[in-house]
Lab assay of single mutants.
Amino acid sequence: GRPPQPKSVEDLLDRINLKEHMPTFLFNGYEDLDTFKLLEEEDLDELNIRDPEHRAVLLTAVELLQEYDSN
């Protein structure tokens, strides 16, 4: 089946190999997954995450988090 739900933002970023963005998220108040899963493209602009590939991966991760919630 699906991988288990990540336990933290750090756990999530670790899985998608984008842990380099951890300080950015923490500094901007994305300390838990409840906050993280509200992330949208405009937020990525504000966080200055410009890499299109990173953005795509992050937004996909957000969608997956929302799916875990609805099940």
Rank of each mutant, 00 (worst) to 15 (best):
E10F: 08
L58W: 02
M22Q: 09
E41I: 06
M22L: 15
A56H: 12
Y68C: 14
S70T: 15
V57Q: 15
L59G: 07
E63M: 07
P52G: 04
R15L: 10
L12E: 03
D51G: 04
L58F: 06
F27M: 15
L33R: 00
D45I: 13
E41L: 05
I49H: 03
G29H: 02
H21A: 02
D14Q: 10
S8A: 01
I16N: 09
D43E: 07
P6L: 08
F27D: 15
F36D: 04
Y68N: 14
Y30R: 01
E31F: 08
L65P: 01
L26H: 08
E10S: 08
V57K: 15
T24Y: 00
E63G: 11
S8G: 06
H54S: 08
N17A: 09
E20N: 08
E67W: 08
S8L: 02
P6I: 11
D32C: 09
L13Q: 08
R55F: 01
L18F: 00
E40N: 15
N48H: 12
D43M: 06
D11L: 01
E67V: 10
L59Y: 02
R55K: 14
L64I: 08
E20Q: 10
Y30T: 01
L47Y: 03
T35G: 08
E63D: 12
P4I: 13
N71T: 13
P3Y: 13
E10H: 06
S8F: 00
H21K: 04
H54K: 07
D34F: 01
S8V: 00
N71P: 13
E46Q: 05
R55Y: 00
D32A: 06
L65N: 02
L65R: 02
F25T: 06
T24W: 01
N17P: 00
D34S: 11
L64M: 15
P23Q: 12
E40W: 00
V9F: 04
R55V: 06
L59N: 07
N28V: 00
I49L: 01
L38R: 12
D51F: 00
D45N: 10
P4W: 13
D51S: 07
I49D: 04
I49P: 00
R2C: 00
Q66D: 07
I16L: 14
E63A: 13
L33E: 00
L58H: 06
N17S: 10
A61Q: 12
L59D: 06
D51H: 08
G29M: 04
P3A: 11
L39Y: 00
L44T: 01
Y68V: 12
E42I: 07
L65D: 07
A61T: 07
F25G: 01
V9M: 07
G1E: 14
D11V: 02
F36N: 04
K7D: 10
N48G: 15
L38K: 14
I49G: 03
F25H: 01
G1C: 12
L38Y: 11
A56Y: 05
N28E: 05
F25V: 03
L59I: 06
K19W: 05
L12S: 04
L47K: 03
S70F: 07
E42A: 14
E67T: 12
F27S: 15
K7F: 07
P3G: 12
L26M: 12
E67G: 11
L47N: 02
E20I: 10
L12N: 03
D43W: 00
D69P: 12
